[in-house]
Design a protein around this nucleic acid. Structure first.
Lengths: 229, 229
DNA sequence: TTTCAATTTATAAATTTTTTATAGAATCAT
DNA sequence: ATGATTCTATAAAAAATTTATAAATTGAAA
């Protein structure tokens, strides 16, 4: 479940926001002044922060700046004054969105959802879910060691799976056969680089529609291979 | 330099936006209808898209959806009707921002900058080993071994890529053909210097607008070549 | 200044070399 | 004994190099 931090001194507003967000399935924590807000924002993990500009203690400007120095999570800044919004926008503090009070709670919910979806889209896909890699029509389940191509499971042998997984985990990066060999095979194993070529061929037979025109694993002539994304 | 695509049928507005964005150092491409806009958005590389909702051809909804299926770049949606903005926000098409016409061009510039900064913050940071050389319209991605000229990827062979990269990494420095040969080819390989000339020609065919009047790789008569910056 | 030869670079095409794809045999491990 | 892995030989593809010729530039002589 996603956790949201609301830093807002007007308790009635904070509670209203909390109610709506909880109805949408979020876990909500409220802090009523700037110092407490910053402290918990830095010490605990949240997925999004709703930050009022006018606060007792540290103000919203400062809190936003300090959070940004350490974290990339989405911040929605809220203010009663339209002028302040324009001002902070210009400051480039790194807030992700700005709302002018009063606003409807459902608009807040919509924006929260949109920001979390974007964050997942940009960061979550690359950084988090380490057990399942999904690129275009291919799904690689690392813990189950299964590969599903356009909905059909294909049988992969050990080395084939390791090689495909390594390439897919580093999309677009070109690796030489030597690098791939060192990466997948035992460091000290003295073997022929040609085995990499053969494994690439085997993988292509399973994932490519036309092995002669590979859509996934591209040959970089004179260099090596890369997983195209 | 960052490239921005504006998909907008009112030419006066598009031109105004373009002027302001160019003053801020962006490269701007305009398309006046939905079909052209989607086509170029998918086939070339941009850093951000400003997308009008009401368009001849495909409408903004559809374009946004289709771009999102393939790319994560920031999209700012623009509409004359406040109601439409609320509507698309609810649809969750994956746009990154929404602006209601009329808006000031400087507000657009501010938002563009903010979105690009965030995109870099989120994506640029986790895509490590991001060594990219960027000079005027040319982007060279060393790990992916890809070259993008004015937003269009060009296929480079091994030696061509190495030679271009070396020159671009040492802009303005004049190298003789002998020096380039020693640098790119194996030290001891005894070969004809003429192959350098031929490779320069091949590279120029791919990056120069007019190969007879090269803008990037300049011939220094009687001496060698240099990458002009 | 003009002209012409010498030199250098550009270009296109032919040739050679290098690299990869592929199939099948041999080997290895379970 | 079976299937995975590695090795080998050959075919195919791609790139690098060479060669021949054209075009451009320079410098010297008329």
């Amino acid at each position: 479940m996603s956790r949201i931090l609301i830093i807002e001194d007007e308790e009635a507003i904070a509670d209203l926001e909390k109610d709506y967000l909880e109805l949408s399935g979020f876990e909500v924590i409220i802090r009523n002044d700037g110092d407490d807000g910053l402290q918990i924002a830095l010490s605990e993990e949240f997925d999004l922060i709703v930050l009022d500009l006018m606060l007792p203690g540290l103000d919203g400007f400062e809190i936003c700046k300090r959070i940004r120095e350490e974290k990339n999570i989405p911040i929605i800044m809220v203010s009663a004054k339209k002028d302040d919004i324009d001002k902070i926008r210009g400051l480039g503090l790194g807030a992700d969105d700005y709302m002018t009070k009063p606003f409807s709670p459902s608009e807040l919910v919509a924006r929260v959802k949109a920001h979390m979806a974007r964050y997942d889209r940009l960061v979550g896909s690359n950084q988090k879910n380490n057990d399942v890699i999904e690129i275009r029509g291919i799904r690689i389940d690392k813990t189950a060691r299964r590969v599903i191509v356009d909905g059909v499971e294909k049988a992969f042998t050990g080395k084939e799976f390791d090689l495909l997984t390594f390439l897919a985990e580093h999309p677009n990066h070109v690796y030489t056969k030597e690098e791939l060999f060192r990466e997948i095979w035992d460091m000290d194993s003295i073997g022929d680089i040609a085995t990499v070529t053969v494994h690439i061929k085997k993988i292509r037979e399973k994932i490519e529609y036309d092995s002669a025109k590979p859509q996934y694993i591209e040959t970089i002539w004179g260099v090596g291979y890369r997983f195209k994304v």
